[in-house]
Simulated assay, not measured.
Amino acid sequence: MSRAPITKTGSERLRSELERLKSVERPKIIAAIAEARAHGDLKENAEYHAAREQQSFIEGRIKELEAALSTAEVIDVSRLSPGSKIVFGAIVELEDEESGEAVKYQIVGDLEADIKQALIAVSSPIARALIGKSAGDSFEFRAPNGVKRYEITGVSYE
């Protein structure tokens, strides 16, 4: 089994979520189930069924996080010395060669990817196209809406 890469920051964020689920959300849902049970007939008790469904979701997420973290390889990006090349953990600044629009992404592990936070998975088409390139390079990749061309305007590691 290969170990999935994850940044130190991503690992801390997932561990924090796991701790919150175990210490805050799990006890809260157990209390809600107990309260709903006290209301009587469980067959027609919507509060009870909703609480059990929420409990199932929380327990599933806990198992998912525990499994992911147990097989993850934490990579401290600040200790990498890739020179000017883009590698896992790089923060890249790009400019769309067609529209001139500037974007900034960090290349992270699949477990922590979140496009809303500008965190792109190392396995994504754009990240695969970026790996090994340097600032000043142009590249293209196939996006769902066609081929995109970007120029790399900056590379940093935090």
Rank of each mutant, 00 (worst) to 15 (best):
G10D: 01
I30C: 09
P125V: 13
G100Q: 06
A102D: 08
I58T: 12
R26L: 15
S70N: 07
R52Q: 15
D110K: 04
S124T: 15
L130P: 04
I6A: 01
S16W: 04
Q117A: 04
S2I: 13
S84M: 05
A129L: 02
G100R: 12
V74H: 06
E64F: 15
V87N: 02
G10Q: 00
R3V: 09
A36M: 08
K43N: 15
K43T: 10
G89C: 06
I126Q: 14
G100M: 05
A72D: 05
G146E: 08
R3A: 05
N145H: 06
E12N: 10
K8N: 09
F88I: 10
A46V: 15
I126T: 05
A32C: 03
A113D: 12
V74W: 00
A38W: 06
L80T: 00
K104N: 09
E158N: 09
A102I: 04
I58R: 06
G154F: 06
R128S: 01
A121P: 09
L21Q: 05
S134F: 00
S99H: 04
D96G: 02
N45F: 13
S23C: 00
L94V: 07
Q106I: 06
E25V: 15
R3P: 00
I115L: 13
A38P: 00
S99Q: 02
I75T: 03
R26N: 04
K148C: 06
P27L: 08
P125R: 05
G83E: 08
Y150A: 05
I62P: 07
E35C: 03
E97A: 10
R13T: 11
E98M: 11
V92T: 04
K8M: 08
F141C: 12
G83L: 05
K104C: 08
P144E: 09
E47P: 01
K148M: 10
L42A: 12
L21G: 07
Q117H: 11
G109R: 08
A72V: 01
V92M: 13
R20I: 01
K63I: 03
K116P: 01
A68R: 07
A113C: 11
E17C: 00
E25Y: 15
M1T: 13
S138Q: 10
L69D: 11
I58V: 15
A121L: 01
H39S: 12
R149V: 15
E17D: 02
P82W: 00
V77M: 02
P5F: 04
A4I: 08
E95M: 10
S81K: 10
I29L: 15
E112Y: 14
E66F: 07
L21C: 13
A68Y: 05
S134G: 02
E25C: 02
D76M: 08
A129E: 10
A127K: 06
L130V: 11
E35T: 14
E73M: 10
L14S: 00
I115D: 11
R3Q: 14
A36Q: 13
S23N: 13
P144G: 04
R128G: 02
Y157N: 00
Y48F: 15
I29S: 04
L42H: 11
V24P: 10
